[in-house]
């Protein structure tokens, strides 16, 4: 019988060993994609800068972000204090170095952004998978829950809950996650709906696999691409809302440098020292644009319709 399958036999000889099959390995493919796209390059550079600022802030920041110098308040950009210290972006109303505070501010932004995205992904993906796979009344209940969540403005909800629970980093993260999971749930649900009708899911059921295994092994890996994309947007969204909350006075306390709080503080001095409010604003804008651009590129990159 072996001579009958000469076709596939020759195919096997031509194909390189499976591990390197397909020419490039996946990481190399991603790297190449990033390098060849301006969008992705810009996005990844901004993200890298924010991450480096956050992780290495004590080494990068020229000054202690909490050190006050009441004698040298509201100094403009590029000014040197009487004691000889140089303030590239000036000082704020308590004489603290703006650049150092902005660098340290990346920490809060990054922690909030990442942990919110992580928690929201977990909640939303779980709900979306369950709703999409089982359908029926389970789907109806979970999706109405989404509708309720969508009907409440994120900021308003966050303010209301923070007013009750009190402000802490943990509370802010949890509340923001609560406002972000719906996007995941809805996208994952619709992807699951189309995925569960695929023949390989039916084949898996015909092999005797249970629902949990089918969801975990067959559906989740196949709806993963949109999840990554939404997660990047959720990071950006969380950074913005966190800044907005700080601006509204519901952010993490003033001692911890945060872009939103800096913006709020600087607003009072907009007439005398406009850079105080605009610099943290620029940091927020730049990082959000960077993350969004990267997410945008990722979406295009992972969209199989654009390939081959």
């Amino acid at each position: 019988m072996s001579q009958r399958i000469a076709g596939p036999g020759t195919l096997a000889e031509q194909t390189p060993p499976p591990r390197s099959a397909g020419g490039l390995s996946r990481p190399a493919e991603v790297l190449l994609g990033i390098i060849t796209s301006k969008k992705a390059m810009f996005g990844i550079l901004v993200i890298l800068m924010v991450v480096i600022c956050a992780v290495f802030s004590p080494w990068i920041a020229p000054h202690d972000p909490a050190a006050q110098s009441l004698a040298f308040r509201l100094a403009p950009m590029f000014s040197t204090a009487p004691d000889g210290t140089f303030h590239l972006l000036g000082t704020d109303h308590l004489g603290r170095d703006v650049l150092s505070r902005a660098i340290y501010g990346a920490r809060v932004g990054l922690i909030v952004g990442l942990s919110v995205a992580l928690i929201a992904t977990f909640i939303g993906v779980t709900i979306g998978l369950v709703a999409g796979y089982f359908g029926g009344w389970i789907d109806a209940v979970l999706m109405r829950l989404c509708d309720v969540q969508l009907a409440l403005p994120a900021i308003l909800l966050a303010i209301a809950i923070l007013a009750i629970t009190g402000v802490s980093l943990l509370n802010i993260v949890l509340i923001l996650a609560l406002t972000q999971w719906v996007a995941f749930a809805r996208v994952v649900r619709s992807a699951t709906l189309s995925e569960r009708e695929k023949e390989y899911v039916l084949a898996a059921r015909a092999l005797g696999f249970g629902s949990a295994r089918i969801i975990y092994r067959y559906i989740l890996p196949n709806v993963f691409a949109p999840i990554i994309v939404i997660a990047t947007f959720a990071v950006a969204q969380a950074i913005i809302i966190e800044a907005a909350l700080s601006f509204l006075g519901l952010g993490i306390s003033g001692a911890t440098p945060s872009w939103g709080a800096m913006l709020a503080d600087g607003r009072t001095y907009l007439a005398i020292a406009p850079s105080l409010a605009t610099i943290p604003g620029l940091f927020i804008t730049l990082s959000v644009v960077g993350i969004n651009l990267f997410g945008d590129w990722l979406r295009d990159f992972l969209d199989p319709k654009l390939k081959m």
């Binding site: 499976p18 695929k198 023949e199 390989y200 039916l202 084949a203 898996a204 059921r205 015909a206 092999l207 005797g208 696999f209 249970g210 092994r217 067959y218 890996p221 196949n222």
Partner: peptide, 24 residues
Amino acid sequence: RKLRGDRIAMIFQDPMTSLNPVFT
């Protein structure tokens, strides 16, 4: 579920789509 794939097995029309694309 115990029976499926153990004592009764099934193969499908479209082999292009009846395998999970993300695993070997």
